[in-house]
Nucleic acid binder design. Structure first.
Lengths: 173, 173
DNA sequence: GGCTTGTTGAGACTCTTTCCCAACAAGCAA
DNA sequence: TTGCTTGTTGGGAAAGAGTCTCAACAAGCC
């Protein structure tokens, strides 16, 4: 397996990390007395070869397409491995409209999301102020904060333009 | 049906609203050309008789217990009506760990949640600053904000105490 | 190379939510 | 009030996401 390939493509958008994802995962598996198997390798390599958000179903589909023959990974294994990757801190899981969506966590800067309710696109932003606010609220309420989920709903720029165009057409009638 | 009874119990924790929930819902139904039926009345009355968070299953259960005979409401109707109540702006729906949870929206002040990952308890807080921050982020990104979901995860005070007790016991061994 | 034991994959299963459709009941009109 | 039209209900089946079971398999150790 080529670590360097994975490492390099990953480095494009990553903050500094000591190890490429697969090696990081191997550490985790070793620490837990779990085995480094072929399916786990295939899945991690695939997941970290690109940066989009994805869900389990899409992943199952893609793995089926890409490696139709011997390298396919079964559905239970996809779900199992995704959970392990979340446990290991390599992926982050969130649910958007009752559906589980995953994204890179390891080596990727902390951020929150803007969710366009029209086209479903997720975009990202980061705010230190939000973290400060969150921790302040926790302190006030005697709550030990370990994390948060913040999703801003609305309409993205592109969909706003579309809607305006639509509206203009209607106005002409 | 007694509006005043519903209205009074509701007023205890509400901000000012023009109408009790059932009347507000009737307006919505009328506007949509929908009918004011017995099941819808029973459900709304039950849901707005208390202020806790709840899920569809608990509601089905409670309605079955409370009105075993003719006044029970079927499962499909519970789901259908919950969706209508969300549409009408009377309830807010959120998913916590992939599970749909509902809470009062109409006449209830805006707030966000602290979620204890140990006992599952939800508590509430409000922050104007968060709203400002949210809108500022939206403006920056050319995103038209319509709402948000903010859940702070962690451990509530009670569970922190429990964990400490547990820990002390272990230390004694 | 052999052996132990964690892992995989097929398929069944669970859980939540929705769909289908025949029986029913709002609400309007006469 | 009665009758009629049409939206609504409830039972059961079905869909969709995710998990469980278990026999066959393959890491990793000796």
């Amino acid at each position: 397996m080529s670590h360097s390939q994975l490492g390099e493509s990953y480095a494009l958008t990553s903050v500094d990390v000591a190890l490429p994802p697969m090696e990081r995962f191997e550490e985790y598996l070793q620490a837990k007395g779990k085995r480094i198997t072929q399916p786990r390798r295939i899945l991690v390599e695939h997941v970290f070869s690109k940066h989009e958000h994805f869900d389990a179903d899409a992943l199952i589909e893609e793995l089926a397409q890409r490696d139709a023959g011997p390298k396919r990974v079964s559905r239970p294994t996809v779900y199992r491995t995704l959970n392990e990757l979340v446990e290991a801190g390599l992926l982050r899981k969130m649910d958007i409209g009752g559906r589980a969506v995953y994204e890179h966590d390891y080596g990727y800067p902390d951020h929150d999301h803007l969710y366009c309710t029209q086209c479903g696109k997720l975009s990202e932003f980061h705010s230190e102020e939000l973290i400060r606010l969150r921790d302040a609220v926790g302190r006030e309420q005697g709550f030990r904060v370990t994390g948060h989920k913040f999703i801003v709903n609305g309409t993205c720029q592109e969909c706003q333009r579309k809607t305006r165009r639509q509206k203009r057409k209607v106005d002409l009638i």
